[in-house]
C-alpha cells in the first residue's frame, strides 16, 4: 500500500519551474531513493512534501490524505520527518536539547527521556557529548544527531536529504548502515542522494530526477545496471 503518493507535482520559484509535474510513490516498508544531479529538484521535492515549499499544483497524499497546504508542524505530527540537507542541527543548543526538540511533538516527558536513551543506544557518540553545544560536533556527529533528532518523533516515514554529503568515506558507510538499520525496525525511508551507487545498493526502488522531471524508475538493482544511470551517475 502506498504510504506516500506524489501526483503531478509542480513547483515554481518565481517564474522558474523547479518541478515539472512529477509522480511517484513510496510504499510502506520500502526504501525509495531519488537520485539526480545538483538542481534536479530533489531537495525541492522533499521540502514540498514537508510543507516548507508550496507547490503550484499536484497532490501529495500521505496515508490517504492530501496534505498540500498543511503547515509543516502539523505534517510532522502525522508521522513524517525529514533529516534536512546540511544537517541543520541547532548549534547553540546542547546535543541533549537538540534531541528534546526532536521530540517536541511528544507531550510525555518520561517518554522523551526514554527515546533519548534509545537514540544514545544507536549513537553512543552522542551520549558522550550530550552536554556539548551541537555546533561543536564534527560533521559526522552532527549527521548522527540530525538522524537521532528525527527519530525522536517516532516517524513512520523518514526522509533523508543528502545524508552522506561532506562526510569521510568511513562515515558515509556508517550512515548507510544506520539507514538500513532504521529500515529494519519498520521505518519507511525516502532517501535523496548524490551518492547514487550507495543509494541504489540499499534501495528497493529508485527514481532518477533530471531538471524537474522523473526520467527513469525501477528497482534499485535495475537502475544500478541501467546504461543511462551508469553513464550519468555512476561514472562508468
Amino acid at each position: 500500500m502506498a504510504l506516500l503518493e506524489i501526483k503531478d507535482l509542480q513547483v515554481y520559484y518565481g517564474v522558474i519551474q523547479a518541478l515539472k509535474g512529477i509522480t511517484f510513490e513510496v510504499n510502506e516498508g520500502e526504501i525509495v531513493t531519488l537520485i539526480g544531479a545538483n538542481g534536479a529538484g530533489k531537495t525541492t521535492t522533499m521540502q514540498s512534501i514537508m510543507g516548507l515549499i508550496h507547490p503550484r499544483s499536484g497532490e501529495i497524499i500521505y496515508n490517504g490524505q492530501n496534505i498540500v497546504g498543511m503547515p509543516t508542524h502539523k505534517i510532522v505530527r502525522l508521522g513524517m520527518t525529514q533529516v534536512p540537507e546540511g544537517r541543520r542541527v541547532f548549534s547553540e543548543l546542547s546535543v541533549y536539547d537538540n534531541l528534546v526538540m526532536g521530540g517536541y511533538v511528544n507531550k510525555n516527558p518520561s517518554e522523551i527521556k526514554k527515546d533519548i536513551e534509545t537514540v544514545y543506544g544507536l549513537f553512543p557518540r552522542l551520549k558522550e557529548r550530550k552536554s556539548q553545544p551541537a555546533g561543536m560536533l564534527s560533521g559526522g556527529e552532527q549527521q548522527m544527531l540530525a538522524m537521532g533528532r528525527a527519530l525522536m518523533s517516532h516517524p513512520k516515514l523518514m526522509m533523508l536529504d543528502e545524508p552522506s554529503m561532506g562526510l569521510a568515506p568511513i562515515l558515509v558507510t556508517q550512515v548507510f548502515e544506520m539507514i538500513k538499520h532504521l529500515h529494519s525496525t519498520g521505518t519507511t525511508i525516502l532517501l535523496v542522494e548524490q551518492n547514487a551507487e550507495k543509494a541504489l545498493a540499499i534501495a528497493d526502488r529508485a527514481y532518477v530526477l533530471e531538471t524537474g522531471n522523473i526520467i527513469l524508475s525501477g528497482t534499485g538493482s535495475e537502475l544500478a545496471n541501467s546504461d543511462l544511470v551508469k553513464k550519468a551517475y555512476l561514472g562508468n
Binding site: M50, G51, L52, P71, T72, H73, V76, R77, T81, Q82, P84, R88, V89, F90, S91, E92, L93, M101, G102, Y104, V105, R149, A150, S153
Partner: peptide, 11 residues
C-alpha cells in the same frame, strides 16, 4: 537559529 529546521521538529 533555524526557522525551517524548527518547523521540521513540529514547532
Amino acid at each position: 537559529e533555524d526557522k525551517g529546521a524548527a518547523q521540521l521538529m513540529g514547532i
